[in-house]
Design a protein around this nucleic acid. Structure first.
Lengths: 241, 241
DNA sequence: TCCACCTCGTGACTTAAGTCACTGCACGCC
DNA sequence: GGCGTGCAGTGACTTAAGTCACGAGGTGGA
């Protein structure tokens, strides 16, 4: 991890631009952003490098500037369950800043990633002075909580096949491109990573992928996946059983 | 559901006492509590009655005064997954108040329960005027988030047996009483309810309970459960399969 | 008192999930 | 070119989870 302590100029640095654009700080004036800029640290991580591990004491707020990070829990026998993948503008670990406990999960960089770090005290001060920031944090946390509830729902009510389909559709909608055969998706994640995200193991992802292909619902050519029958897949998600 | 609109006197009503004692409003002065008291509604629910259902628009904050409520998701095929059971002093649905969305889960009363209801606008106003309240909400929400992450962890890494053991120990620690044979616990929940809390079905709770008894780890006499070998149970929780 | 209703226990079975082991392939590197 | 390494596919198997069906107690009304 690389730490850059002070920005050379504060007018147009990466820090300033990211803070300014972060939804969480929308309520702050330019002067206040400048103030925060001076007290923010940039950290650079290489792919798979850990930002922090579950249980460590929480020292401050992390804000993704560029790249992506994954938030996950890991089990003693080596399995991982991904809770979220966050990209630029997203804040990570807003909550432990307030409740004083350690980090509830671990976070690592997916790719080359730059993260802004604001100390716990600075962030709390900002929230106390600007209640709108606190409300915004609550809003962000609301979304996070909803996603966690969604994961619980999927884990306790659905099958691996169901979760894989729902993962594929979500992914296709967010990064897929149209073609005359259907949405085309280039997988950035390995089967292992998909497995961690949907709460299962590599082999089952592989098998279910093969089965979806055998049923002509998708076509997989290496890391290129074409959603051949989006309606059919969606139907399966909503059907009971 | 029974709604009582205005308290007769505000000096020592149930409402005032509950608001005053609620951790979430610890930062408010007496005058402010009085103010809120006048704008709070008491709602009374009978066992199993719904406070609201998942997806409904969120109209305000609920604060449990007496009794208990359960927060849960339900699946199309009738299964339920309990996310939390909250007793007096706890707030419910703090978050949707802020992010504008509908309720992420349903809530019903476990037993005869009185709930204070504060409108969305009133609560937001209080948070804006008293940032400490917002920080307190963040702290409460932090705890909630941790518990959700815990559920996800259990669901994706552990077996039904493991979850049942962990449920029993948690329950025993919170409401169990000592005896020379070990902690004794009187079950308030049916097997069906336990199943919903640990994410499985009635039959598996029944079977696993029987198996724990056969192994002399617990003894069940009707709704009386004795933890015979606490150490043994705990060991199983931490052992890697 | 008897019936309706709910909860529990359990046997027998089906199926989803996970494990193990091995193969083949592609890519990058010396 | 050859080799190591990581990822993907798959067969064979084990085991946990869930389903279905049924019978036994218990409780509380009518």
């Amino acid at each position: 991890m690389l730490v850059k302590l002070l920005p050379v100029e504060s007018g147009d640095t990466l820090i300033y631009r990211v803070l300014k654009a972060a939804p969480i700080f929308a309520a702050l004036s330019d002067a206040e952003i400048e103030y925060l800029t001076a007290r923010t640290e940039v950290r650079t991580y290489s792919p798979a490098e850990m930002l922090f591990s579950e249980g460590e004491p929480c020292t401050g707020l992390h804000l993704v500037a560029t790249g992506r990070v994954r938030i996950f829990k890991s089990s003693p026998n080596g399995r991982e369950q991904v809770l979220a993948v966050e990209g630029p503008g997203a804040s990570v670990a807003e909550l432990p800043v307030f409740d004083g406990g350690g980090y509830p999960a671990s976070v690592s960089a997916v790719e080359e990633t730059k993260v802004l770090f604001i100390s716990r005290q600075d962030f709390r001060d900002v929230c106390l002075e600007h209640p709108e920031v606190a409300l915004k944090v609550l809003q962000v946390v609301g979304g996070r909580l909803r996603r966690l509830v969604g994961i619980i729902e999927e884990l306790s009510f659905t099958t691996v096949r169901h979760r894989l389909i729902s993962w594929l559709l979500r992914e296709a909608r967010s990064v897929g491109r149209e073609s005359e055969e259907g949405l085309v998706l280039t997988l950035a994640a390995s089967h292992q990573e998909i497995a961690s995200q949907i709460g299962t193991v590599r082999e089952l992802v592989s098998r279910n992928m093969a089965r979806l292909q055998a049923q002509s619902l998708i076509r997989a050519r290496g890391s290129e996946i074409t959603i051949l029958d989006q309606a059919g897949l969606e139907a399966e998600l909503s059907s009971v059983v």
